[in-house]
Simulated assay, not measured.
Amino acid sequence: MELPDVELRPLRRADLPLLGRWLAEPLVARWWHHESSPEAVERDFGPSLDGEDVTALYVAEHAGAPFGLVQVYPIEAYPEYVEELTPVCAVPAGALSIDYLVGEPSARGRGLGTAMIAAAVARGFADHPAAQDVLVPVALGNVASWRALRRAGATWYAAGELSPDNPEDPPDHVVHRFTRRTPSQG
């Protein structure tokens, strides 16, 4: 499947108002359940921008227009996350994870989310040469998200109960896995 061209560029402080707008967008708010006020966006994303947090933040652009956000991070940097995830699935040493959103409603349904995910996985593997896996838990009910993961090349890895981002959701999650391709795999 041919994916649209997507570029990832580092999130900048000047992007925070746009990110706040995206977080307030109804479909994003439904699944991310994140405060969108300027203070909350600064509080939660500012430490990464300042280099105080290991999470890498990127704005996804298509044809020069920003449409989404992706976060890439080593799972082991967050011990509480490792502790929650381990009963559901094995967490390979050095594994990464990503979080993502398509903030512009006009960008949905065009393959851009899938392309953004694929670009984020590639970027994660490039920036973390020892990482062999990217694990991505998604609420079972967020079918569009886990379908985009599959179209981007992930496989279904595990299923189990994790704390949902939105407290209205049940704890049922599916974990998808990307594995680094070796040169012989192409």
Rank of each mutant, 00 (worst) to 15 (best):
R12E: 15
A93W: 06
A107H: 05
P170T: 15
S48M: 10
V70M: 04
G20W: 07
P167F: 08
R180G: 07
A90G: 07
V121A: 10
A65D: 09
L18I: 09
R181N: 11
V121W: 00
D127V: 06
T155A: 14
A159V: 08
R9Y: 01
D169P: 02
E84H: 05
R110H: 15
W156M: 03
P137Y: 10
R30Y: 11
N142V: 10
Y78W: 11
V72S: 02
E42I: 01
Y100Q: 15
R21I: 05
M1F: 09
P171H: 13
W31D: 02
E80M: 04
V134F: 00
L140I: 06
L135D: 07
P164M: 10
L149P: 03
R181K: 15
G186C: 08
Y157A: 10
P47M: 05
A130E: 15
A131N: 04
D169E: 13
I98T: 13
S37D: 10
R150C: 13
E161K: 14
A154D: 02
A93V: 12
A95K: 03
S36P: 05
S163I: 15
W146R: 11
Q71T: 12
L69G: 03
G113Q: 02
R110E: 11
H173C: 04
E80I: 06
G160M: 04
V82G: 07
L149F: 03
D172G: 10
A93R: 14
V175K: 03
L162G: 05
L85S: 01
C89N: 07
L19G: 02
R151N: 09
R9T: 12
G46L: 10
R151P: 06
P74C: 09
V136R: 02
D44I: 09
A77F: 08
G153W: 00
E25N: 08
V174S: 01
Y58D: 10
A14K: 07
E39M: 03
A63K: 12
P17M: 09
L49R: 09
G113P: 11
D99A: 12
G124C: 06
R9G: 02
Q71W: 00
V88Q: 04
E2S: 09
R21T: 11
R108E: 03
T114L: 05
V134G: 04
S97I: 06
P17Y: 13
